[in-house]
C-alpha cells in the first residue's frame, strides 16, 4: 500500500497525459464525424441511384469491418503497399491517421442514425414548407433539422458513449492513449514494473468521462423536450 502511494503521483501523471490523448481523439472524431455523417446520409438518400448505391456500399464496408483493421490499413497501407509512408513515424502522424479512421468509421454509423431521423419526420412537414413557398434548403434548415436532432439524440448518445471507450483501439497503431499509458507499468516504466493497478485506475477515467457525457446528453435531450 505504501508503495502504491509512492508510485501514485508518477502513475497519475502518465495516465493524465494518456487521457489527454484519449480526449483529443474523442473530440476530433466527434467534430469531424457529426457533419460528415450528414453528408453521407444525404448521399445514401440521394435519388441519383449510382450515388446512393456507392454510399451504401461504403457504409457497408466501414460498418462491416472492425475499426481495428481500418486503423491498421489507414496507418500502414501507404508505407507497405505504395512504398510511401505519408504519416511519418512520430506521434502527430499516428494521431492524424487515427483521427481519419475514427472520423470515417463514426461518420458511417452517424449517417445511418441521421437517415432514420430524417425519414421519420412526417412528409407533411415538407409539404407544409413547400406550400408556404420555402426552398428545400430552407425546409431542411428551418423545419427539419431541429426535429431530426431531437430524434437522433438518444441513439447518438449510445454511439458517443461507445466512442469514449473505442478510442482505446487506437493503441494498435501505437497511439499512446490512456490504456497504453496504464499498460506501460506492467512491463516496466519509470521504475515501476509489474503493476496492474494503474490499468484499473484508467478504467475510472473512462467511467467518469462517460458519466459526464451521459449527463450532458441527457440535459440536451431534456432541453429539446420543449416541443414534441
Amino acid at each position: 500500500m505504501e508503495l502504491i502511494m509512492e508510485q501514485l503521483p508518477i502513475v497519475l501523471h502518465a495516465l493524465n497525459i494518456g487521457f489527454l490523448q484519449t480526449l483529443k481523439l474523442f473530440f476530433v472524431t466527434l467534430i469531424g464525424a457529426a457533419p460528415l455523417g450528414l453528408v453521407i446520409a444525404f448521399g445514401s438518400m440521394s435519388r441519383f441511384k449510382p450515388l446512393s448505391w456507392l454510399t451504401k456500399i461504403i457504409i457497408w464496408i466501414i460498418r462491416g469491418t472492425p475499426l481495428m483493421i481500418q486503423l491498421l490499413i489507414v496507418y500502414y497501407f501507404p508505407g507497405l503497399v505504395f512504398k510511401n509512408n505519408i504519416w511519418g513515424s512520430g506521434e502527430a502522424g499516428r494521431f492524424l491517421a487515427a483521427s481519419i479512421s475514427f472520423i470515417i468509421n463514426y461518420a458511417c454509423y452517424f449517417s445511418e442514425i441521421y437517415r432514420g431521423g430524417i425519414q421519420n419526420i412526417p412528409v407533411g412537414q415538407e409539404e407544409a414548407g413547400l406550400v408556404l413557398g420555402m426552398t428545400k434548403r430552407q425546409i431542411f434548415f428551418k423545419v427539419k433539422l431541429l426535429q431530426m436532432i431531437k430524434r437522433v439524440v438518444p441513439p447518438m448518445s449510445n454511439e458517443i458513449i461507445t466512442l469514449v471507450k473505442d478510442t482505446s483501439l487506437a493503441r494498435i497503431i501505437a497511439l499512446q492513449e490512456i490504456i497504453w499509458a496504464g499498460q506501460a507499468f506492467m512491463k516496466g516504466s519509470q521504475g515501476i514494473s509489474g503493476a496492474i493497478w494503474p490499468l484499473f485506475c484508467a478504467a475510472f477515467y473512462y467511467l467518469i468521462w462517460s458519466g459526464l457525457v451521459t449527463v450532458l446528453l441527457g440535459k440536451l435531450e431534456k432541453k429539446l423536450n420543449y416541443f414534441r
Binding site: 500502414y76 508505407g79 507497405l80 504519416w87 513515424s89 502522424g93
Partner: peptide, 8 residues
C-alpha cells in the same frame, strides 16, 4: 509493418 512501411 512499422519497419517495412518506413515509420521506423
Amino acid at each position: 509493418f512499422e519497419l517495412e512501411g518506413k515509420s521506423i
